[in-house]
Computed example of a mutant assay.
Amino acid sequence: MKHQVNKAVFLDRDGVINEVKTKRVKFVNRPDELYLLQGVPEAIKKLNDAGYKVFVVTNQGGVGLGYMTEDELNIIHEHMAKELAKQGAQITEIMACTHAPHENCYCRKPNPQMILDLIEDYDIDIMKSYMIGDREPDIEAGNAAGIKSLMVVDTTPEAYKCFKDLSEAVDWILEDEKA
């Protein structure tokens, strides 16, 4: 077995990177509905600067349900990556499950397949990697992939630790790495 060399942070999108179910936006179906949460670009840049690969793993059942096309989703993700890059934050890759929630596909979180595929593709060391989500399926997917799973916004006993937002979680990761 080859030695895994890269460390990574896997981020859920809605509720971790951008607003969802707020006064301004219910769901993100167009680029102009994507509002980055406060501190997100800075937090991702801190991870980049510390040598982490940053991935987005997101369930986007709106495609499977017909609320948007896969091309429209790609445009939203390109817009998000550009907005983050304006502030020096880089996303290594964005992976989305576009199946409808009821399709019981293998890639939709809480299944860990998106994370496992990225671990394989990028030679990721799971012992030095984290999943950050805002819902139980995110935490379950990270746990199933064998990585520390951190919850933001809400709390759950399934999570390794819980934080108020991405910035707080990233600061903890950078301290945890030194331990």
Rank of each mutant, 00 (worst) to 15 (best):
G64D: 04
Y160N: 14
P157H: 11
Y35C: 06
H99L: 09
M68L: 13
A179F: 15
P157V: 08
N48Q: 05
P137T: 12
K86I: 01
A144K: 15
N18W: 02
M80H: 04
D171F: 06
G51L: 09
D49F: 06
R24P: 07
V56Q: 03
I76L: 02
L11C: 07
H102P: 00
Y160L: 03
Y52N: 08
G62W: 07
A100E: 13
D138P: 10
V5I: 15
P112Y: 10
V56R: 01
D176G: 08
V152L: 08
T156H: 01
K82V: 06
L34G: 03
P41R: 01
G142C: 10
Y160E: 10
P137I: 11
G39A: 04
D176L: 06
P31C: 12
M114R: 02
P41N: 09
A96T: 14
F27P: 00
I76V: 12
I17F: 01
G15C: 06
Y130L: 14
L116A: 09
G62M: 03
V5G: 13
A43F: 03
E42S: 11
G15Q: 08
A89N: 03
P101F: 05
T69M: 06
L65P: 00
V152D: 08
K128Q: 15
K26A: 13
Y106W: 02
M127D: 15
I173C: 05
D154N: 15
E103T: 12
S129M: 11
D14F: 09
I119N: 08
K161H: 12
K7V: 11
R24Q: 10
M68F: 09
D32I: 08
L174W: 06
N29A: 07
D71V: 08
G142A: 12
E19D: 06
Q90A: 09
N143I: 09
V153A: 14
Q90I: 14
G15S: 03
K164S: 10
H77R: 02
L166C: 10
I75H: 11
T156Y: 03
P101S: 14
C97R: 05
Q113S: 13
M68C: 00
F27W: 14
F55P: 07
K178V: 06
N48A: 09
E42K: 13
N6V: 02
V5N: 11
V9I: 05
I126H: 00
M114F: 02
M95W: 12
S149P: 03
H99R: 02
W172K: 08
V28R: 07
G62T: 11
L73G: 04
K109W: 01
L150C: 09
L34V: 08
G51W: 08
P31K: 07
K148G: 05
A8R: 01
K82N: 14
A81E: 11
N29M: 08
N74M: 14
